[in-house]
Amino acid sequence: MKTYSKQQLALRNGQDRPEIWIAFEGIIYDVSHSKLWRNGKHYEHWAGQDLTEELEDAPHSSKVFERLNAVGKLENL
């Protein structure tokens, strides 16, 4: 699986490029085709970033990531 930097992830925010990606626990997921992530926004969350810490406030569990397509790993710096 390819590794991407936080800067590369940030470009996939639904505004700068057509891809819409999010990261969770070091894995990057493509949510480009999700109706819940139109224009790179999902409620008060924005695409192009690591959402691991934000899951605590979500009304769902981490199981939602099992349905998403993993496209890479987030680079550890």
Results as ranks from 00 to 15, higher is better:
Leu68Gly: 07
Tyr4Val: 00
Phe24Thr: 09
Glu19Thr: 13
His45Gln: 09
Pro18Phe: 02
Lys73Gln: 14
Ala23Met: 12
Asn39Ala: 12
Gly14Tyr: 00
His33Asn: 12
Ser62Glu: 06
Gln15Trp: 04
Ser5Phe: 01
Glu19Cys: 11
Gln15His: 10
Leu9Trp: 05
Val31Asn: 12
Lys6Gln: 02
Leu9Met: 02
Val71Trp: 14
Arg38Trp: 02
Gly40Glu: 07
Asn39Pro: 02
Trp21Tyr: 09
Glu44Phe: 00
Tyr43Trp: 03
Glu25Thr: 12
Ile27Cys: 14
Ala58Asp: 01
Pro59Ala: 02
Gly26Trp: 13
Val71Arg: 14
Ser5Gln: 00
Trp21Gln: 11
Leu68Cys: 13
Lys2Ala: 12
Asn13Tyr: 07
Lys6Gly: 01
Leu51Gln: 04
Ala10Lys: 14
Val31Asp: 12
Ile27Lys: 15
Tyr43Glu: 02
Gly14Val: 08
Gln15Ile: 13
Gln15Lys: 15
Asp30Phe: 14
Ala10Asn: 11
Leu74Thr: 05
Ile27Arg: 15
Ile22Trp: 11
Pro18Arg: 08
Arg67Gln: 10
Glu53Ala: 05
Arg67Pro: 00
Phe24Trp: 11
Lys73Phe: 09
Asn76Met: 05
Gln49Ala: 06
Gln15Pro: 08
Trp21His: 09
Ser61Val: 06
Gly48Trp: 05
Leu68His: 09
His60Cys: 00
Ile28Lys: 14
His60Tyr: 07
His45Asp: 02
Phe65Met: 13
Trp46Pro: 01
Leu51Thr: 07
Ile20Pro: 08
Tyr43Met: 03
Asp50Asn: 07
Asn76Gly: 06
Tyr43Lys: 01
Arg12Thr: 05
Pro18Leu: 06
Gly14Lys: 03
Phe65Thr: 13
Asp30Thr: 13
Tyr43His: 04
Gly40Pro: 03
Lys63Gln: 14
Tyr29Pro: 11
Asp16Pro: 08
Glu66His: 14
Ala58Tyr: 03
Glu19Gln: 15
Ser5Leu: 01
Thr52Val: 09
Leu74Arg: 07
Glu75Met: 04
Gly48Met: 05
Thr3Ile: 08
Glu66Phe: 10
Tyr43Gln: 03
Trp21Leu: 10
Pro18His: 07
Ser61Pro: 06
Leu11Gln: 14
Thr3Trp: 02
Gln7Thr: 06
